[in-house]
Every structure is written in structure tokens, then in C-alpha cells.
Design a protein around this nucleic acid. Structure first.
Length: 495
RNA sequence: GUGGCCAUGGUAUAAUGGUCAUUACUUCGGUUUGUGGUACCGAAAAUACGGGUUCAAUUCCCGUUGGCCACCCCA
């Protein structure tokens, strides 16, 4: 029996005897020499030196996930599941087919679609050399891959439009921030093959309903950037205008003027605002066709009662868009306008030139992406405010406790048998004390526990304990299911 | 990529240029070795990493890494 224990840190010693291998982080961790003074049963004192230092139990930093990447943990399961289920439901409801494409693709696919000169391609892509020397990249978004898939799988010969959806991780080497990660997840819907305002409107309504069904109220910000010619003409005009106001602009905008003038319209710097307000509006430069098309989209949205705002300054950072572009934002309470998270939950638009540009038959297309991390963030916020969110929780109401070696041996078999019959039970076979197991049962919030002990094993029976009243019933092991069913406690797996 | 703030057990925190680094939750064990919710007792568990100043650094300084936030950009 240990009566006394003391630990002495010998700082001085380790300082002076600094080992030469100090570069090794784990070993440099302060060595601690522990001395335990113990007294054995007979009362004689024994001093023993425990082994030199133990390496730090703290995990070393290089074990942590990479910067901007996160483990998604069980505590957040409900939010993620809610989002995933809703994605699946809504995509299904609108007849989108599920598709999954590789995360890794030839780099040129992304460069050719998203566009050289965009930040996503120039600064944020994970690119590396494959073993054969070819350049591959982690997808920074899904549209390029989906378009590639449409082409390489000959989907142009299916009945149009071809509508697909996917969910999965995307990668951008960005600086992590609220709602922004290097690996993040998107829900994507794309519609290929038909150019019609109704297609755009449907996509927008899908995005809107996805959020709405999750309890997130949102507004769509929408604009049209017209055809490529419209945009080129407009860009020339805009640059000329910005040049004339050059001295009033912020430094970023001065740079953007050459690189990506449309983005200046998005500038949030205060000094630029008056200039932006007076800037020529792209909508005035749309060709007749584009203008008509845009009006039609808006009409549909009115019809569908999707709340939207025209935003003449909305352009998007990816090159492939034409005509309709939109972003969707969570409606903020006035109370938390201060509270950051100003990123869009999702965005998208029409890209009629992309498929042809990548080598397919020229085919119109339109789509959107929603960031699941941001959705999950919004869901968490809502829950904090006590709002109801469609949480997916499959909980069993029953705990299975076992006691004694034979019972333990029997337990797994019984649990398996119950599972096959569609009865799910919580259990912790690793624990041996009944007390500990019932504690757990309590924590799980079950209403009843099954208790199997030595005696029950021999009798072929089992105890059913009502956790509220404490009343116990002994039933035949063969009749567990019936008993539980009688009390309406069963979570049947199928159906 | 730029800037601001930050770094103490698993989580959340307290404190200090010099005994054994505080507290709570969690985890584990015990208070009846067949009965949970409460109570009590006990245990495990931390100064991110590297360097500098100092007799002495968890504390002060620098660097690295990471986190949060904003910009850029985007989801």
C-alpha cells in the first residue's frame, strides 16, 4: 500500500546534463526524475526510483490535423447528419441524380474551367506531382469535375437536362477563418443541357429550400453578368470609369483594375463606396437576349416566392459564369449583425460556355454549391437560440447491462440476436461493474435496462428494469422482444 | 498572401520571476464486488515548440507552429 508519495522535479540536473540530441522535441521535454517513497506492509521503507523521465503524454503537434483541417466529431453528428439528409432529400425531391467524382483530378481541368488569374486557381489550389510526373490537384470545387464527368461519360446522349448532385470535400489552401477551412464540404447541384430561365429558377429554389427546410431563413442575392460579349464590353467601360476615379480608390481596387476589374464592385472599403455606386451597372450593358432571360428568371422567383434582392454589383470569382449569378445569405437578426460569419452560405449561376470550352459539345449548364460547414455553423447558432432544427437522432431507449464472466460471454450473443430482430440496445461490454453500467444507462437517458447476471444466465432469463420507477421484471430470454414491444420501447431497424 | 489578438490537464479556467501550478466539468477507482440519477472519498491529467535575458522563466523578450478574428478571396 502506498502511504506517501512524492515527486521531485530536478530541474537543475536536467539543465546541466542537457543531452546532445536536444533537437528531438519529444526527448527534450523536461525529463523528470520521480522518486517514490513507499512503505510496504511490514512497515519498512523502500525507496525506488521510477524509470527516468516519461515522455510527455501530451501529443506532439505534428500529430494534430493539418492547418485549416478538422475532425468532425460525434458531438456534431446531429448537425452534419441533418444537413446531409436534407441534401439527399431535396435533391431527390427535385429529381437530381446522385454522383460522386474523384477528389483528385488533372490540374489542367481546374485551370481551364475556373480560370487562370482567379485566386482559387492561382493561390489556393493544392497541386502536386503524381508519380509519373503529371500534375494533379485536389478539387477546389465540384463543378469542373462534374462537367468533366458529363463529358467523359457521354451524358449528352441522355435525356436533357441531366441533373446531378453531389456532396463531398473540397480543398483550398486559404488562410483559415470563421467558416473557412482548407478542407471543407459542399453540397452541389448541377443541371446540364437546357438553357431556360426555369432551370436557373429551379436550382435557386432547391438551394433556398434546402436551407429553409433546415430552419435557416435566407435571401438570394442575384444578378446577371450577361454573355461573354456583354461582359467584355462592360469591362472596358468599367475600367475606363475606374481609371477616371483612380485617385479615390483603395489600393486593392487599383490593383484589381487590371487583374479583375469586376471584383472592384464588391469592394467593402468605405472610400470606394461612392465610386462603386456611380459606376456603370452591368445590367445596362446586357444584350437584349440576356436582359430578357434575366427578367424571366426573376419572374419565376416571384412565382416561387423565393425572397431575393437584385445586386448589380454581384459578380463571381470564377471565370466560367454567364448570365445568371447568385449568392445566398442567411438572414441576420439585427442583434447579431455584429456577429461575423458574413460569408455566403452558397452561390452559383449559369455557365453556358464551360462544357464546350473543356472539349465537350457546346452545352448550356447551371448549378450551385452550398458550404456545409457554414450551414452547420448556422444550425448550431439556431440551436443556441433555442430554435428547433430538424435533428436526426436515432436513440435507443434500452441499455443492456451484464454482470459476471458468463453473463458477459452471453451478452454479445444476445445483443447480436436482438439486433437481428431489429432491437437496438446500448451497451458497454468493457465495463464490469453493474453500477458503472447503470450509470451509463442513465447518461444515455434510456428508459429501460436489460440486466443479465450469473443467475439469469443459468435460468435463461433476463431482468427488465424500468429506470424511472425502479421496478424490475424477470422474463424469459426468448421473449425479450415481445416484452419490449408490449411497452412500446423498441427501435425497429427496418421499415 | 496581409494585419490584429491569443496559446496552462481531454474541456473550461485561476495564479505566479523562486515550496507540491488553482478550480470546475469529464474520465477512472472506491464508499455494499447484483442495481443508476444525489452525496462523499480517492486517482489520472497541463504551462504548445525552440531559443534568449536571469542565480532562477509557466510568467519577460524573440522565433516557430497552431488557433481565433478581420482583409483578400470564397463555400
Amino acid at each position: 500500500m502506498v502511504i506517501k508519495k512524492q515527486t521531485i522535479k530536478l530541474k537543475k540536473v536536467q539543465k546541466n546534463s542537457k543531452p546532445s540530441f536536444e533537437k528531438n522535441k519529444k526527448i527534450t521535454k523536461k525529463p523528470v526524475v520521480k522518486t517514490k517513497a513507499t512503505v510496504d506492509n511490514k512497515g519498512s521503507e523502500v525507496t525506488k526510483k521510477t524509470e527516468e523521465k516519461k515522455p510527455s503524454k501530451k501529443f506532439s503537434k505534428d500529430l494534430a490535423p493539418l492547418r485549416g483541417m478538422k475532425d468532425i466529431l460525434p458531438k456534431d453528428e446531429q448537425f452534419w447528419k441533418a444537413a446531409h439528409h436534407e441534401a439527399e432529400d431535396i435533391a431527390h425531391a427535385y429529381n437530381f441524380g446522385w454522383i460522386e467524382t474523384p477528389i483528385l483530378e488533372e490540374v489542367s481541368l481546374f485551370i481551364r474551367s475556373i480560370g487562370k488569374g482567379t485566386d482559387v486557381v492561382d493561390k489556393e489550389m493544392y497541386v502536386f506531382e503524381d508519380r509519373d510526373g503529371s500534375k494533379v490537384g485536389l478539387r477546389p470545387e465540384a463543378t469542373a469535375s462534374l462537367v468533366r464527368s458529363y463529358i467523359t461519360n457521354g451524358m449528352q446522349s441522355e435525356s436533357q437536362p441531366v441533373k446531378v448532385w453531389t456532396c463531398g470535400p473540397m480543398f483550398r489552401h486559404d488562410r483559415p477563418q470563421a467558416g473557412r477551412f482548407r478542407q471543407f464540404h459542399q453540397f452541389n447541384c448541377e443541371s446540364f443541357g437546357v438553357k431556360d430561365a426555369s432551370v436557373d429558377a429551379e436550382l435557386i429554389v432547391v438551394a433556398y429550400n434546402f436551407l429553409n427546410d433546415l430552419g435557416i431563413s435566407s435571401t438570394v442575392f442575384i444578378n446577371s453578368i450577361g454573355s461573354k460579349e456583354d461582359r467584355d464590353n462592360y469591362t472596358i467601360e468599367l475600367v475606363a470609369y475606374l481609371r477616371s476615379k483612380r485617385s479615390y480608390l483603395c489600393d486593392d481596387c487599383k490593383k484589381r483594375m487590371n487583374k479583375n476589374p469586376l471584383r472592384s464592385l464588391d469592394c467593402k472599403v468605405e472610400q470606394c463606396q461612392p465610386v462603386i455606386e456611380d459606376a456603370p451597372k452591368i445590367i445596362d450593358w446586357l444584350g437584349v437576349e440576356s436582359k430578357k432571360y434575366f427578367m424571366k428568371v426573376l419572374e419565376y422567383l416571384d412565382e416561387l416566392e423565393v425572397p431575393y434582392m437584385l445586386q448589380p454589383t454581384l459578380v463571381r470569382g470564377l471565370d466560367y459564369y454567364t448570365d445568371t449569378v447568385f449568392e445566398i445569405y442567411e438572414d441576420q437578426d439585427k442583434a447579431d449583425t455584429q456577429k461575423s460569419s458574413q460569408g455566403a452560405l452558397g452561390g452559383g449561376g449559369r455557365y453556358d460556355l464551360l462544357i464546350g470550352q473543356l472539349g465537350g459539345q457546346p452545352t448550356p449548364a447551371s448549378g450551385f454549391a452550398i458550404g456545409l460547414e457554414r450551414v452547420v455553423m448556422a444550425l448550431k447558432n439556431l440551436k443556441e437560440k433555442g430554435k428547433n432544427i430538424p435533428i436526426v437522432e436515432k436513440r435507443s431507449k434500452i441499455f443492456f447491462a451484464q454482470l459476471g464472466d458468463q453473463a458477459r460471454m452471453r451478452a454479445l450473443g444476445l445483443i447480436e440476436k436482438l439486433r437481428r430482430e431489429g432491437v437496438l440496445v446500448y451497451h458497454n461490454i468493457g465495463k464490469s461493474s453493474l453500477k458503472g453500467q447503470l450509470e451509463l444507462a442513465n447518461k444515455y437517458g434510456v428508459t429501460h435496462s436489460l440486466i443479465l447476471g450469473q443467475k439469469e444466465v443459468l435460468d435463461g432469463t433476463i431482468i427488465i428494469r424500468d429506470m424511472d420507477s425502479g421496478i424490475q421484471e424477470i422474463v424469459d430470454q426468448q421473449k425479450i422482444k415481445q416484452e419490449l414491444k408490449k411497452n412500446n420501447l423498441i427501435t425497429i431497424k427496418s421499415e
